[in-house]
Amino acid sequence: MAINWFKYSSPASFYPLAGRMIPWAMAVGVLTGVAGLYVGFFVAPTDYQQGESYRIMFIHVPAAWMSMFTYIVMAVWAVAGLIWNTRLSSMMATALAPTGAMFTFIALWTGALWGKPTWGTYWVWDARLTSELILLFLYIGFIALQASIDDPRRAARAGGLLALVGLVNVPIIYWSVKWWNTLHQGASISFAKAPTMAAEMLLALLLVTLAFWAYTIAVAMMRVRCEILESERQSNWIYETVEGLR
C-alpha cells in the first residue's frame, strides 16, 4: 500500500493527523519518562566518584542532546519552507523553536546545578556550556525575529533565511569556542567521566531521551495545530472539520 505523503503537506490534511499523533506521543513520553526516572533513581547504582549528584545527568544529557537535535530539525524545516515555499514546513520550524529553547535552558540550568557539587562552581566557561549558551541565543533570535514580523509570509521566509545562516555558522561557532576553551582552560577542571558507565545508567539515559523525544513531538504537534488554526482562519475547512467550531 503506497501512502501519499504529499497529501499531508497541506495544513488541511495535516491538522487531523497531528491531532491523532498527540495522545500517542504523550503516552509514550509519560511511560518512558516514568520508567526512566524509576531506573534512574531506584535501579542505577550510586556513582563511586560523584555520589548521588550524578543523577542530574539523566535529564542534563538528554536535554542537551534534544536541544542540538531540535535546532537541526528546526533549521531543516525552515530552510525547506524557504526553498519549496511550503507553509507547513515553516510552521513546523516555528512550532519546534520554543521547545528547543526550553531544552537548551534546561541543559544549562541542570548543567550549572551539576557543576556546583562536581566542580565547586555553578558556571565554568567550558566549551560545551558556552556553546549551549550561544545556541540559546540563536534560538531566542529566531523566535524574536518571527514574533516581531506581522506578515506571516515574511515571518516564515525571514526565519528560514536566519536558520540557514545559523546552520552555516553553528559548526564554526562550536569549533571556535572549543579552540578558545582548550587554549584558556587550566588543568583544574576535567570531566571526570567514569571509565565505563553501568548498564542501568545507560538504560535510564536512553529512556529519558526517548521520553523527551516523544514530548517534543507531542508539543510540536500541539503548537503546529495552533499555528494552522491561526493562519487558516479565512479557510472554510476549519469551520467544517475542527471539533468545537462546527
Binding site: I140, L145, G166, N169, I172, I173, S176, W179, W180
Partner: peptide, 20 residues
C-alpha cells in the same frame, strides 16, 4: 535590539580569534 540579538552570537568566532 532585535538586530543585536540576531547578529552578536554570530560574531563570536571573530571575537575569539581577533582578541585572542
Amino acid at each position: 535590539v532585535l538586530l543585536s540579538l540576531l547578529v552578536l552570537p554570530l560574531y563570536v568566532p571573530v571575537l575569539i580569534f581577533g582578541a585572542g
